[in-house]
């Protein structure tokens, strides 16, 4: 096994060009578990820990937000970024423990592409774009396309996730995650909802091979909320019911498909209601 401790993005890209199959290690919160358990034995590692450029976020002139792939979740929970993207702050706070949030990143969340990744419903609901670079090229891919399936992405060998850009998201946004413990849980189901007037965007996590959007529920919401109407309790329930029909959860040792379906319906409904009374 070899390791390159990259200090700059260019360092990392050069190392990747040489060994395109290198394991990219950012916070280590997923890959190190695999290595500790002997399930991953990479021949080459490129550590991104030392790359300052990846640990930054900035507000862009058009109102969108760039978030470096190496920015730890702890930096999203409070402060300027949290003010711009409150749903991301709420999602970040549910990630693991404080120790995990000091290490874990959106780059890792995207690269690992677990359906239960806590940041992913936010990126999906807010139509974020993933920036990829290699030594010879760069490209931007919508999150929707980037996430292909369970632990499968469009990232090609030799490519590095540099960051994501979240377009301006006026209006309300919020996040909810269902787990049976009050801290440190892997999502049984999660949801991010963004609403600007009657335009509702909803993404669900942990209830399909990848994070899903709910176009039918979003259309139903637009109709319910047309003309500035507030949703009744029944409206919200119907919205949740439609959303839950747009996912395909599995049963496993963490929960059952039936519960996951029920839970996303409940949290989607509650998020819609919450978007009106904070």
């Amino acid at each position: 096994m070899t390791i390159v401790n990259a200090r700059t993005i260019d360092d990392a890209l050069a190392a990747l060009a040489e060994r395109p199959d290198s394991l990219l290690l950012q916070g280590g919160t997923d890959s190190m578990v695999q290595m500790n358990f002997g399930r991953l034995d990479p021949r080459a590692v490129v550590s991104l820990r030392g790359i300052r450029e990846l640990r930054e976020w900035r507000a862009l002139p058009d109102g969108s937000t760039f978030i470096g792939s190496g920015l730890p979740y702890a930096s999203m929970e409070k402060g300027g970024l949290a003010a711009r993207l409150p749903a991301l702050a709420e999602a970040a706070r549910t990630v693991g423990s404080p120790q995990i949030r000091a290490a874990g990143t959106l780059g890792g969340n995207l690269g690992t592409a677990s359906p239960a990744g806590d940041g992913l419903p936010v990126l999906r609901a807010l139509d974020a774009t993933v920036h990829l670079r290699s030594a010879t090229s760069s490209r931007d891919v919508p999150v929707a396309e980037f996430l292909v399936g369970v632990k499968r992405t469009l990232r090609a060998p030799g490519e590095l996730i540099v960051g994501v850009t979240v377009p301006p998201a006026p209006g309300w946004q919020g996040y909810a995650k269902v787990g049976v413990r009050n801290a440190m849980v892997i999502a049984i189901a999660s949801a991010c909802l963004a609403r600007d007037g009657s335009a509702v965007r909803l993404a669900l996590g942990a209830v399909a091979p990848t994070v899903v959007r709910c176009p039918a529920a979003e259309r139903a919401a637009a109709a319910m909320l047309a003309g500035g109407r507030r949703p009744s309790r029944d409206d919200a329930r119907e919205f949740g019911r439609i959303a839950s029909s747009e996912c395909s959860p599995i049963s496993d040792h963490r929960s059952t498909a039936a519960y996951r379906t029920h839970a996303v319906a409940v949290v989607a409904a509650r998020l819609l209601e919450r978007s009106f009374h904070g």
């Binding site: 709420e90 706070r93 549910t94 919020g174 996040y175 909810a176 995650k177 269902v178 787990g179 413990r181 009050n182 801290a183 849980v185 999660s190 409940v266 949290v267 509650r270 919450r274």
Partner: peptide, 16 residues
């Protein structure tokens, strides 16, 4: 909300 069922997952409002 941390003291409510669901904690930081923010699944429940007080009325739930």
């Amino acid at each position: 909300p941390l003291s409510r069922p669901g904690g930081s997952g923010l699944t429940a409002d007080r009325r739930h």
